[in-house]
Design a protein around this nucleic acid. Structure first.
Lengths: 172, 172
DNA sequence: TCTCTGTGGCTAACGCTGTTAGCTTAGACG
DNA sequence: CGTCTAAGCTAACAGCGTTAGCCACAGAGA
């Protein structure tokens, strides 16, 4: 494993263990038993590390959604993964997408499961993504009042036809 | 106008003019012609300023939504305000809600317009909020591919019944 | 074997951040 | 006139990302 990969691994560990504000160049170096400036022998700077984490997060999220056969299970998987990996989810979605640093295909792979459950309808897939992301983002930010029944909100949101076409009996 | 209000005003000006990373205690002090440590005579720290900005942003957003008579115009107003004031929108929604610092009623006032168009259905209002917020958040973060037809996405999302009950002819 | 070169560490330092301690000055009040 | 408070000031601290420059070691080539 290259030193660069070790650095990104350590960053991910640090992120999940201690939160995003703990991912500093000095603490990251500590984690590897070296000094902060030595990191720059392997990595251009912090943004590059963040982009690598973002790519990883997108791949993990995509993997978590892959198996979902239909809309309800996709929604459940999406929410479940985000709540289980809030810091990774944040870095996957809050950071402006660093497309130029992203390996080709990563974005498409993350989008694929949503497209699948909308039968290839791009507009519907984006609406679905907005809905799922918005609910997760607000939940993670603690914006719903404590005690709000979010299961009910998700059930409501996914039962209504945000996603599919003209409804039951329609083209799928 | 109290010095504290002047500080929050200056912070808002700075935020809208130069972005969130420009809102530092030193630049804020510059804007007021004083030195950074003097700010602490009027304000406990930066989080307090951010909470004040968040409250302001919520009030502005609520005001922008107030006049919307129905779902389509509410959705349009929501997106429009967010795109026009991206930094304020960010601070309104990305920051964990500092409920203990928030003036009473602000949260409810911001929620009211959404509740109105869902006929008082709290679950539907939350789903609607998630949808609108998610779409706006992803758009602001530059997550949709350049050239994506977001008007169509919004039209699709709002045409489907994320929000209302059992559909046209239903209880409204 | 000697040298040369690249790799990957190191320390010191710079300018930035939020924040604290402690001093001073202006104005109000008894 | 004396005193107290409000609101400014400078100096400083720890932590941030980052750069410059130095050094030790590994491996390659003559």
């Amino acid at each position: 494993m290259s030193r660069r990969e070790e650095i990104v691994d350590a960053a991910e560990r640090l992120l999940e263990r201690a939160g995003p504000e703990a991912v500093t160049m000095r603490r990251l170096a500590d984690e590897l038993g070296i000094q902060a400036p030595s990191l720059y022998k392997h990595v251009a700077g912090k943004p590059e590390i963040e982009a690598a984490l973002q790519q990883r997060a997108l791949q993990r999220l995509a993997a978590a959604l892959e198996a979902a056969p239909d809309l309800p299970s996709l929604a459940a998987a999406y929410r479940d993964w985000a709540l289980r990996h809030p810091r990774l989810y944040e870095i996957a979605t809050r950071l402006p997408l660093a497309r130029e640093r992203l390996a080709p295909g990563v974005e498409a792979a993350a989008a694929a499961p949503l497209l699948r459950v909308t039968g290839g309808d791009l507009t519907a897939a984006r609406a679905l993504w907005g809905l799922a992301h918005g609910l997760v983002d607000l939940e993670l930010a603690g914006r719903f009042p404590p005690g709000a029944d979010l299961d009910a909100v998700w059930a409501h949101a996914m039962a209504e036809r945000v996603v599919a076409g003209p409804g039951p009996g329609g083209p799928g």
